[in-house]
Amino acid sequence: MPAETNSINANNERLFESVQLGPYLLRNRIVMAPLTRSRATEGDVPSEMAILYYAQRASAGLIIAEATQISPQGKGYVFTPGIYNQTQVDAWKKITEAVHAKDGRIYLQLWHVGRISHPSIQPNNELPVAPSAITPEGQAYTNDGFVPLVTPRALRLEEMPGIVEQYRQAAKYALAAGFDGVEIHAANGYLLDQFLRDKTNQRTDAYGGSIENRVRLLVEVTEAVTAVWGGNRVGLRISPLSKFGDIWDSNPQALFTHVVEKLNAFKLAYLHVIEGDTGGEREVAGGFDLQILRALFNGAYMANNGYDAALADHRLDAGKADLIAFGRPFISNPDLVERMRTSAPLSEPDPKTMYGGDGHGYIDYPTLSGSVAA
C-alpha cells in the first residue's frame, strides 16, 4: 500500500461530539462524502465487495454512499451503481444491513448526470439529455476509455414530469433498500446543477430564463423525494462556486440564495455545500461568502472540500458548520475517525486503483493495527 503521510492534528473534540441529524443521533460530526469508485457489476448492480467497503467505514457519523444513477438515462460513467430496479435494491440492502450491524448510518446520493455522458453509455445509444443543447468540454469514461463529450439533446417540456418521476421512484427504491435517508445531488455540473446555472440553461420556457424558472426542477424533485422520505431524512448537495463539469453562473449569490430560500419550505436534514471549486481551491475569484447560505438555511450545514481535522475543528468552533464531509481520506483510511481522534498518520490513496478494478485499493487498506478491517 502507499506510504503513510503526516498526521492531521485535531486540536479539540468537536469533531467527535454526537449530533442530532433529523431523527438520528450521529455518534460524531464526521461524514464520509460520496465517492465514485467504479466497482459496480453488470446491470449497474453494487458489487459484493461494496458490502465490506462500506462496513469498514461505518465508524463515520454518517456515510453518504457513492453517487447512484436514478435511471439508465442518468448514467454517465461505466461501472457506477444504480437504484432503479429490484436487483439493485437487493444488492444495496446487503450493504445497508452491514453498515447498520456496525451501528452506522448511511444515506444514498441520488444522481442524474444529464449531459456529462455519452451515447455509448445511454440506452439505445441515445444522446444524453440536458436543459439546452450545449456541448460541454471534457471527456466521458466509457467501455472504450475516455472519449470526448458530445452535444446533448435538450429535454422537451413534456419530458420534465418524467425526470421528476425518476427521482421519486429512486427515492422509493432507496427506502426499500434500507437506507437511513437520501441526498439529492444538485452539484458538480450534473443535471440539476445544469438547470440552475445560466451557462448551461438557455431555455425560454418555464424551466429557463429567470432564477425562479431555473430553480423550478430542483424544487419539483425535492418535493417528490421528500414526499417519500419526509424532509428530515433528506439532504441536498450544491456547489455554488464550482466550475466542475464545465459550468458557471453569472450571479451565483442571487441564484443560490434563492435556492436555499426555496429549500427551506421542505425542512431538509442538511445542506451539503462544496466550498470553492470541487477538488480545488476553496477561495474562488468572483465568489461570495457561503456563510450567507448557512445563515439562511434552516437545517444542518455540512461543509466539504479540502478539510483536514484542524480546519474542521476551527470551522466547527467558529459555528461555521455542523458536519464536515471528508472524501479522499476515507478511501485509504477505513478507520479515519480513530486516526483523527488519536492524531495518527494517514495513508495516502493509490491513484492507480481509485476507479475500477478489483479489491486492491478498495477493501485492502489496513487500519492502524496493520490489519485489514472486517
Rank of each mutant, 00 (worst) to 15 (best):
A10C: 14
R341L: 13
E17P: 04
I184G: 00
I184V: 11
R29E: 11
R237I: 04
T204I: 09
I211T: 08
I184N: 04
G370A: 12
V372G: 03
G357Q: 10
E4L: 14
P23M: 05
M160C: 05
A170W: 14
L175I: 11
I70D: 06
F256L: 06
P72G: 03
P329E: 10
Q86C: 01
S369K: 13
P34L: 01
N6F: 14
V337G: 02
V182H: 09
D205I: 10
L196Y: 14
I211V: 14
T278L: 07
T151R: 06
A303P: 11
P252K: 10
T135A: 01
L255R: 15
I51Q: 02
W92T: 12
V234G: 05
T96H: 14
V337M: 08
S132C: 03
T5P: 12
V19D: 04
F146H: 00
R328E: 07
T5F: 13
K262Y: 15
G114T: 02
G280W: 15
D90F: 15
P351M: 05
G209D: 09
V273E: 07
L268Q: 13
E97W: 01
G299L: 09
T68E: 06
H272P: 11
S210W: 08
T5Q: 10
R153F: 10
A312V: 09
